[in-house]
């Protein structure tokens, strides 16, 4: 997973409302990723209707030096990863793993009873932010995903 260079991770809600967006690449403004995330909504819906089955939707489109990957959960939450196009080929399996980690992070966040699922508000959670940060920087989160209470100092 070392050669995957994540520029941005975005989470889009059920009503295509932005839930979370994180920019890992200072060479583009946040606005650009908001734009990309919004343009990919339609593509994702289309893909999901077409080749249903898998939650991983593959490369949605490429834009200049960026390629956009999508993933839609059963609950219609969309995850988007934007990559700077690398020299090497990126395996779908690696991308799937990254998306799965995001999904786990989201699942853990949603389990918080104080988070209103349909509130259309952006996600504000230190824990979720840490997890996304770790995924975006391409490292494993210390102490695993859910056990921060027990292990790790």
């Amino acid at each position: 997973m070392a050669n995957i260079n994540i520029s941005c991770i975005a989470v889009i809600g059920k009503q295509n409302n932005p839930l979370y967006i994180k920019n890992f690449n200072p060479s583009h403004a946040d606005l650009k990723y908001h734009y990309i995330a919004h343009t990919s909504c339609d593509v994702m819906e289309e893909r999901a209707a077409m080749k249903a089955q898998d939650m991983y939707l593959g490369v949605l489109f490429s834009m200049e030096d960026l390629s956009v990957y999508g993933y839609m959960t059963n609950t219609k939450i969309k995850f988007i990863i934007v990559l700077t196009v690398p020299d090497v080929i990126i395996k779908d399996l690696d991308m799937k793993n990254i998306f799965r980690r995001i999904h786990t992070a989201y699942g853990n966040h949603v389990s918080n009873p104080f988070y209103e699922i349909d509130s259309l508000k952006m996600i504000k959670s230190k824990k979720f932010e840490q997890e996304i940060e770790a995924i975006g920087r391409g490292r494993a989160l210390e102490g695993g995903n859910r056990n921060s209470l027990m292990g790790a100092p």
Binding site: A52, M55, N74, T75, R100, Y106, S111, P113, I117
Partner: peptide
């Protein structure tokens, strides 16, 4: 309702899309 809403995100994680 609130429990179910949250639960499903976890249970349906490794599953294919529903037809």
């Amino acid at each position: 309702f609130r429990v179910g809403e949250r639960l499903i995100e976890k249970i349906s994680k490794d599953r294919l899309r529903f037809t």
